[in-house]
């Protein structure tokens, strides 16, 4: 028995697949690939697959991870080849290794966000210059107002012919999670629709100690 961590990209139309659907899709892909997957014991055995961090519907990613357990050791490049042959367009296994850091250690993620519209840079700076950015958040106890401003770290900003590409670092994982779409929704609302969000893509996952997750 051996555990492997597989990094994969989820792009294009596959961004419309929810986390639950992705899980089912990966299970079927592993079954098609013929890799010797390990199944749980018990009355309803199922293929063991674990995703350390979910990706919200609508976002693309170049750094998703899943952990799979195989009944025997298989060369990493063989895992990559066989899995990629079974994956649909939009899902691509990039790297295989041994699981190191655990899911609970995840602390933040970096997102590349493509925005288009008028005066995007000026509006973005004004948005970020606010003392607080209150957001209505649905919790178990009803609606709650949360200030997301302290959670947004801007790592880079680059002007494009029709807008702006932002690189933001946002909290991720068990300790607190902020969806990139919450930020972009707040921003487009702030601009009263003058700016549109074209693409959100997760590019890196970090641990609480600042080191790269995988």
């Amino acid at each position: 028995m051996k555990d492997y961590r597989i990094e994969f990209a989820k792009t294009g139309s596959l961004r419309y697949i929810s986390h639950l659907d992705l899980n089912r899709c990966m299970i079927r892909a592993i079954r098609r690939s013929g890799l010797p997957a390990w199944y749980t014991e018990g009355f309803h055995p199922h293929l063991y697959l674990m995703f350390p961090l979910a990706l919200s519907l609508g976002a693309e990613s170049l750094c998703e991870c899943m952990d799979v357990r195989l009944t025997e050791e298989v060369p990493e490049d063989e895992i990559l080849t066989r899995l990629n042959a079974a994956l649909p367009e939009g899902l691509r296994a990039l790297r295989v290794g041994t699981p190191g850091r655990e899911a609970v250690e995840i602390g933040s993620a970096v997102y590349e966000i493509t925005l288009t519209g008028q005066d995007v840079r000026v509006r973005w700076e004004a948005f970020l210059a606010q003392e607080s950015i209150p957001i209505e958040k649905k919790t178990k106890k009803g609606m709650k107002t949360v200030d997301i401003r302290p959670q947004i770290t801007q790592e880079a900003v680059e002007e494009t012919p029709d807008g702006l590409t932002l690189t933001l670092r946002l909290p991720a994982g068990n300790e607190g999670n902020l969806n990139a779409s919450v930020v972009t929704d707040a921003f487009t609302a702030f601009t009263e629709g003058a700016v549109q969000c074209r693409r959100i893509c997760r590019t890196k996952i970090f641990c609480l100690d600042g080191k790269v997750f995988f």
Binding site: G12, S13, L14, Y16, I17, S18, D21, C25, R28, A29, R32, L57, A86, P88, E89, G90
Partner: peptide, 9 residues
């Protein structure tokens, strides 16, 4: 949305 986007295996 994936009802409308195709791209399945």
């Amino acid at each position: 949305p994936s009802r409308y986007s195709g791209g399945e295996v």
